[in-house]
């Protein structure tokens, strides 16, 4: 099966919509088992392991994060947060066999109670075609002001 540029772009749009609509089970299914969601702490950070990141999460951590959102005693989600992505048309940077790389600029809003915060993000996706469907191999999300002091970021930018 061949993947078109159009399909890659649609994939990124669909993923953002899943997150905004809270369809986390579907979203987790997009991931390959060895994937990592990386959110660097430093501008142009190159090392995810030996310095601090905001997130560098395997699938177990991502599941835990998602599961916790609905927990009966998850007090920081009573009431729940909501989020909203506005994305630019993704750039398809690489198409090599069954592996693909995209870069997407977006604005992310997360809100709870009377607070709302706006983050400007660059998301880099490593995608792979496995058994006929596109999956997330890795995802890196850079916040443009990553070194600023943040309030809670509870959902998934």
């Amino acid at each position: 099966m061949n993947v078109s540029k159009e399909q890659l772009i649609d994939f990124i749009y669909d993923e953002a919509r899943m997150l905004d609509e809270g369809r986390y089970t579907e979203w987790l299914d997009l991931w390959l088992p060895d994937g990592h969601y990386w959110m660097p702490l430093d501008y142009q950070q190159t090392d995810p392991l030996n310095v601090t990141s905001l997130m560098y999460e395997d699938l177990f951590m991502l599941k835990l994060r998602v599961e916790r959102l609905n927990g009966a005693r998850t007090f920081s989600q009573k009431p729940k947060s909501r989020c909203h992505h506005v994305i630019q048309r993704p750039f398809v940077d690489e198409m090599k066999g069954d592996s693909f790389v995209t870069t997407t600029f977006m604005h992310y809003v997360e809100t709870r109670l009377d607070e709302q915060q706006l983050l400007a993000l660059t998301a880099k996706h490593d995608l792979a075609l496995v058994d006929g469907s596109l999956r997330i191999a890795n995802k890196r999300v850079d916040i443009v002001n990553c070194d600023a002091a943040f309030r809670n970021i509870q959902l998934l930018p």
Binding site: M39, L41, L49, N50, V51, T52, S53, L54, M55, Y56, M61, L64, R65, R68, F75, S76, F150, R151, N152, I153, Q154
Partner: peptide, 17 residues
């Protein structure tokens, strides 16, 4: 570094608690 980001980050679920 893992402890720091899992427990004490603005993105950390333990930090949120």
């Amino acid at each position: 570094a893992m402890y720091n980001r899992m427990i004490n980050a603005p993105t950390s679920i333990v930090g949120h608690d």
